[in-house]
Design a protein around this nucleic acid. Structure first.
Lengths: 234, 234
DNA sequence: GCTTAGTCGATCGTATACAATTTCACCAAA
DNA sequence: TTTGGTGAAATTGTATACGATCGACTAAGC
């Protein structure tokens, strides 16, 4: 609920940071389709700022992998290739077990309560229908992994996971099949249960398979038009 | 050896990317001390470009954690706190075992040869004396971990490791004690040997202890002057 | 003498201006 | 109908301009 201050938007201090967050949210929420051109002038007009600030925001997003900046052509919402998608999930398989073990070291009863609460919210959203609910569900699903990362108390790792989750959301939005990805909810619960029991090996095992399942539920056959450009450019 | 084109510097296309790389190299090589102010005007004058490009470079470096940008005060070479340093190494412990296992899947004889070659170079540098050799040694030590990451064939992970190694170098430059950190060379060799034998569990174990040793050889008592500013600011 | 207010210089934040490049529409020729 | 070329319009790349903020120094007051 970050977009709370719409009515007085032009009075708010609209900094690069704010623009970046807005665009990122829009991309992750799928309100901006992959491949969409983000014209500096247009975005600037939207926020009532000059191109200078917009450029900064777009460059930052480019660094996060959510936007591709092509020289002399402009910025576009990232259109991750299947290979890129595979790398993102492969990276998650490499690091999330580590996160799990580290987080477990720092977890107390209150942490488990927070996790359970998040899972309940997630389950509630799963029951609902409609675009909005689906978006919220994808977001909640990512928040689970993000919350685990935050429990490591490690800001560096948190940033990495933040980026990975955002890019995963983009990939799921692109290649995800209708409703199947929801089955991850039960897996989240199983993971928490395993941690709670102190069975970290099992928790890690479940986590890896969970990521496998997310990836398996994607249909990453070669894409639409936009790929031709990438195939021959540069 | 990236700074090969000094004589004709003003004719080169000095883009944001180039400036960023130069500054990063200077930081990692310890030619720029932590805490050093990077004035936009000064850097711009140095490269004969406007502040616009410099700002872009500094913001990118800030995202990498090598530079701190303080609002209305300017950019400074990062001065990692002990806590930050701990998080960097903790992150490496969380992800490098994963890298190891993934890299091992893709490694053939030629890969081992490359690794051995790097290790020989590392050993050679260890024998030499002088600042230059020490810098090269720290760099070579990082390159070992970077090479392992590159063998995963995963660009996302490679970028993460690149950032972690750069920041580690900064930390070592700051808190490292004279010659002790060199003992890691033998550990690198042991890790390669373990991978070669297919004993990944042992390789991971060695890797974690290796990172432990690097961290243990630091003297992270509370720092010099520059920290006072951070202590009271914000 | 120490504290506090006020001014000045330096540096950053943002907007704007101009140059360079790409895109696209239009038209002519095959 | 398609292909190829030309020029204007749009868009990005970079530099510069100007207002805002911070830090240091000076000076006045306690």
């Amino acid at each position: 609920m970050k977009t709370a201050a719409l009515p007085t938007e032009d009075q708010i201090d609209v900094s690069t940071q704010y623009i970046r967050d807005c665009i990122r949210d829009a991309i992750v929420d799928r309100r901006l389709a992959p491949g969409t051109k983000l014209s500096e002038a247009d975005v600037g007009a939207l926020f009532n700022v000059s191109r200078t600030l917009v450029r900064g925001a777009l460059q930052a997003l480019s660094y996060e992998g959510l936007v591709n900046v092509e020289k002399n052509r402009g910025a576009f919402v990232a259109y991750p290739s299947p290979e890129e998608a595979r790398q993102i999930f492969a990276t998650r398989r490499m690091i999330e077990p580590g996160i799990l073990r580290e987080a477990a070291k720092h977890m107390g009863p209150s942490h488990f309560q927070h996790l359970r609460q998040l899972l309940m919210e997630e389950g509630r959203l799963m029951g609902e229908r409609g675009q909005t609910a689906r978006r919220a569900e994808i977001k909640a699903s990512g928040d689970f992994h993000l919350m685990l990362a935050s429990m490591t108390g490690n800001a560096v790792m948190q940033r990495f996971m933040h980026e990975l989750v955002a890019r995963s959301s983009l990939v799921i939005a692109l290649y995800g099949q209708s409703a199947i990805s929801s089955c991850g909810h039960q897996e989240h619960q199983d993971i928490v249960t395993a941690i709670e029991r102190g069975d970290l090996d099992r928790a890690c095992h479940l986590m890896i398979h969970h990521i496998d399942h997310i990836e398996a539920d994607l249909d990453m056959r070669e894409n639409k038009s936009s790929d031709l450009r990438e195939a021959f450019k540069l």
